[in-house]
Design a binder for these strands. Structure first.
Length: 109
DNA sequence: GGGCTGACGTGGC
DNA sequence: CGCCACGCCAGCC
């Protein structure tokens, strides 16, 4: 049984995950949010939330609802000033500390 | 191959 | 609620 040498290991690359991440993000309904970690799990790589973040950094926000992706603590993305207003425009309220309440807005499939 | 970075997550205080 | 230490891991130099 043991035999499981080299090639079996597939570590995800940014390129190999990009499309599936985009597809997941595209599904997030208006007024709901998903976390980087949740997306990573849905994509099959639970320990790669950082890679998802990296992918979102270069994602086309004019074609995808990138503003609906937040951190597990409800924090918005750095270097994405438009995110708050885009969320507000669809009814997502932020706490006084500028965070999204996942209890209220997290999208459960 | 080694070291650092970072749109992350979790647990502790 | 904030801050921090850790664990995590692809990408980049």
């Amino acid at each position: 049984m043991g035999l499981m040498l080299s090639t079996g290991n597939s570590s995800p690359s940014e390129d190999s995950l990009r499309e599936v991440v985009y597809e997941i993000v595209a599904q997030i309904p208006r007024g709901r949010v998903l976390t980087y970690g949740a997306i990573a799990r849905l994509a099959g790589y639970p320990n790669h939330s950082r890679l998802v973040g990296r992918i979102m950094r270069g994602a086309p926000d004019n074609q995808l609802p990138c503003h609906r992706v937040v951190s597990a603590t409800g924090r918005l993305a750095p270097h994405y000033p438009a995110q708050a207003s885009l969320l507000a425009a669809e009814g997502v309220k932020l706490s006084s500390s500028g965070k999204v309440s996942l209890r209220t807005y997290l999208w459960y499939l």
